[in-house]
Design a protein around this nucleic acid. Sequence first.
DNA 1: AGCGCTCCCGTGAACGTTCACGGGAACGCT
DNA 2: AGCGTTCCCGTGAACGTTCACGGGAGCGCT
Lengths: 336, 336
Amino acid sequence: MVSSSVPGTEPRKVTIHDVARSAGVSRQTVSRALNDKDEIDHSTKQRVLDAARALGYRPSRFARGLVRQDTTTIGLVIPDLLNPFFTEVAAAALEAARTRGWHVVVYDTADRAEEERGTLQVISSQVDAVVGYFSCPEDEVELYTRGMPVVLIGREHRTARFSSIRIDGEQGVHSAVAHLVARGHTRIGMLDHDGRAEPSVRREWFTAAAASHGVDTEMVVGADQSADGGGAALKRLLTAHPDVTAVFTFNDIIAIGALREARRLGRNVPQELAVIGFDGLQLGAVVEPPLTSVALDTRRLGALAIEQVARLLTGVDPLAADDLVVRAELRLAGSA
Amino acid sequence: MVSSSVPGTEPRKVTIHDVARSAGVSRQTVSRALNDKDEIDHSTKQRVLDAARALGYRPSRFARGLVRQDTTTIGLVIPDLLNPFFTEVAAAALEAARTRGWHVVVYDTADRAEEERGTLQVISSQVDAVVGYFSCPEDEVELYTRGMPVVLIGREHRTARFSSIRIDGEQGVHSAVAHLVARGHTRIGMLDHDGRAEPSVRREWFTAAAASHGVDTEMVVGADQSADGGGAALKRLLTAHPDVTAVFTFNDIIAIGALREARRLGRNVPQELAVIGFDGLQLGAVVEPPLTSVALDTRRLGALAIEQVARLLTGVDPLAADDLVVRAELRLAGSA
DNA sequence: AGCGCTCCCGTGAACGTTCACGGGAACGCT
DNA sequence: AGCGTTCCCGTGAACGTTCACGGGAGCGCT
């Protein structure tokens, strides 16, 4: 019946003033009616509400936010929402934010540094704090976030203003390699994350662990961040090193792709090829065989990040670096 | 060096005025410096920037948004971010929003009507439009969104102000049943979505399709919205009806759980039990055997929703109901 | 000297809402 | 009648920023 969008008419913003005039009252009365406050007669309240509806009035969140500064919004930046790992972290962060009554704006950077920059630039004027994954140089992040609290995940920080949640997989990866060695594996390969310039930290953990067990550490190939990428990488690895009997992967997505590829190649898992992933995704439980993985507590990861943001925002008692750690530990299943 | 959060000191908001005073210039000059505008000397600009940094100044997004109303934020409401289907839709929506320079606030309602209400209440003053899944009565949504454009997904709307993206799986489900019948299946069960009061639309499609093929339509059990739920439901179904040779499921998550359960029960898929899911998740490609599914174009779904929001927001030329449809079609793989 | 132009910079206003305060009307009580 | 109380309602101010405008200083040219 009431159409607020007649084509041709300028949809000029209708303000609280217009409603007040239409209802024959003052701004304040309109405000009272809309915010369910006291000190207003029931009939006038109804009249105001009707007028507001008729005009299609909608309060400006900016004006409202300006006068009562109670809403906090934090920006969550992740490389790829389609990767279940980040989804799990995001879900945990969302929940933690919700209990605080906060809002979360989510940005997907598609794992590209360029998108990160663009996001940062636009985010800085839209949120009160930032938490997320960044691959671009820290000083760039610093540049765009001017004075805003920032919590980095899975990455060391060098700037004082930043906080970061450290992911400690050293022991977990060590356990994984130890497990493989105990099962008699001596030729262990790795499917690493492709694309980054420097070798991944997870690879360093693997290399160190393998070396400490006297296992060759040379058989590493890069993989795309996807199941297909993992499959292709496994193929390359096995072509180059047919004697490999076990693989450790950068993450579970790649591991799952490897699992599938192994099946196609007729390699029995875990008998002829053991596979251990990293992340501990829930997804790992539905594939066949279930994925053995160096598992991360994604719930805690997301919650911890939000917790630290909360402390930084209020300025009281921020967590120290030692408390900002999430340890990964080996979770055995069928694939190794 | 400069700590903006000395414990004990009130972290009182530092405004553009403070920066101006500190740098010995006017507000406007500060504004010019921070927004990279012209008409400002390079040295003063630098001085202002330094002062701003020293004070830990951060412009108020509310004040800024109030005066230049160019940023639009839309709220995306989904039942469960951990369900890959919604993740895919969310990712598509995020991308579509990004190309328009919009921001997206994501809310996870945990599939509970109560959370939906809370979210709506809080969302209404935070975004310019809403798109998402809602299970609560439409008039409640109407109540909380007063005049704000709303795009519902996967649900019919009756109110004029709303738009909704219709998911049309009728033909797709029909094809699925036809496929099963052609393969000789006559005892076809379904694992439906549990929890809703009324039977799901997907079940109605299934019932109609099955009936039109002269197949019994009585063998339906409810399943929890998870892989485990799907497994448990399959067990119940097979216990009650051991002669079932094929199942259609409410969605792919449930189907994947069923797949796993079938393996545990020693039922060969697809020879002894054919499984067809709904959604067409990318996830379906990594399980064994790959999942046959009535597939939805999630990308298009998310993009379409954002597109319609854009039109509603500008008030010009909104899409008609006939264009707001995403059709599902059978995508064959190994499981049926 | 006078004029115009460019380069900087500052002042009032506006954005749309809520808060603090004041005040009129009606009513009851002494 | 006078006074206090309750119930409504309205007015100025404030929130922090940007926009539109005005204007001074310095320079070059006639």
